[in-house]
């Protein structure tokens, strides 16, 4: 574009076009900037307030340039702040979420990969229908499963424990992970599998030697999807756990409705960031795969 504009510098029509181009660029970048400010404002506000001191926040409000600086809110939020009688900050809840999200992600992704492999490369009579039925799980609203889960967790003595939530997220995750992996494996040529079978390779050998080496892209998508989803989940967390067993999302709500007196915005800001950081990091590190998961999860 630039060198064309140069050669026609004296052409009046080009000058008008250039001016119009400049104006449209201004509008475009202006719009993007305004929206970017709106999108970033809450994040910036929380980050800044987590380093401000409470008296200053109380005086100047949340949206103000910081005039004080301290790490105290972070220390409090992590290890000493009291919620509902226990004064250990959010660290316990943070680790609960890790202990929940990591195993549930690994298990559900592994199952999804194997299921996807079977449903794309080892089809049997009725497998397409079974796959369709499994996909209904993607759309199930959590509310419909609440009473059954309450009964099952009660019977297995898994209420108020991370293991109960792991079980729930594994079962509910299978539909998603199977869908993702199956749709990816379908595009691997069947000839590859046939050739391997003629060479005498069996079910597991083909999975290990052919499917798994081709899988990293879809496994990353699935892991990111499952991890952020499970980390951010709230309904089951708040219903089936309480107090020290709560994952971070439920604990955050308990913290912010805890307020008998003045809201401790500095500590709560730090607590919110502690809860938001893992999925944000995953998003920033694996952005491309995150978006791919979104678009696949949405359209298919």
């Amino acid at each position: 574009m630039a060198d064309i504009a140069l050669t026609r510098a004296l052409d009046p029509e080009a000058a008008i076009a250039g001016r119009r181009y400049f104006r449209s660029r201004t509008i475009i970048y202006g719009l993007l900037t305004i929206f970017a400010i709106v999108y970033l404002l809450p994040l910036v506000v929380v980050i800044l307030n987590s380093f401000r001191q409470l008296p200053e926040i109380a005086q100047n409000g949340l949206i103000a340039w910081p005039r004080s600086f301290s790490f105290k809110a972070w220390v409090d939020a992590w290890s000493t702040y009291c919620v509902g009688g226990t004064c250990a900050g959010m660290q316990g809840n943070f680790f609960n979420s890790l202990k929940l999200a990591i195993p549930a992600t690994i298990i559900s992704t592994a199952i999804g990969a194997i299921n996807g492999y079977i449903l794309s490369k080892w089809k049997f009579r009725g497998s397409e229908i079974l796959f369709g039925c499994m996909m209904l799980g993607v759309f199930m609203p959590g509310q419909v499963a609440l009473m059954p889960w309450a009964y099952i967790l009660g019977t297995l003595h898994l209420t108020n424990s991370t293991y109960g939530l792991i079980l729930i997220h594994c079962v509910q995750g299978i539909s998603f992970t199977t869908l993702f992996c199956r749709n990816f494996y379908v595009n691997i040529p069947d000839d590859l599998i046939k050739a391997a079978r003629i060479d005498g390779a069996g079910f597991w050998r083909i999975f290990r030697k052919i499917i798994l080496p081709l899988s990293p892209p879809i496994l990353i998508v699935t892991v990111i999807w499952q991890f952020t989803g499970i980390w951010n989940e709230f309904l089951y967390a708040v219903i089936f756990t309480s107090g020290r067993e709560q994952p971070i999302t439920a604990a955050l709500v308990a913290l912010s409705t805890n307020g008998t007196n003045v809201r401790v915005y500095d500590v709560m800001s730090a607590a919110v960031l502690i809860g938001a950081l893992p999925p944000l990091l995953v998003y920033l590190l694996g952005g491309k795969y995150f978006v791919r998961g979104l678009t696949q999860g949405a359209i298919k």
Binding site: F35, A36, Y39, L40, L41, P42, L43, V45, V46, L62, I63, T228, W231, N232, E233, F234, T249, L252, V253, S256, R263, Y265, M268, V272, G275, A276, P279, L280, V282, Y283, L284, G287, F290, V291, L294
Partner: peptide, 20 residues
Amino acid sequence: IFLYPLAVSFVVTGTVWSWL
């Protein structure tokens, strides 16, 4: 910038916006 809110939980978003 426009996509990051999606990575964050509704709980976090709701809490922060309630302050705003």
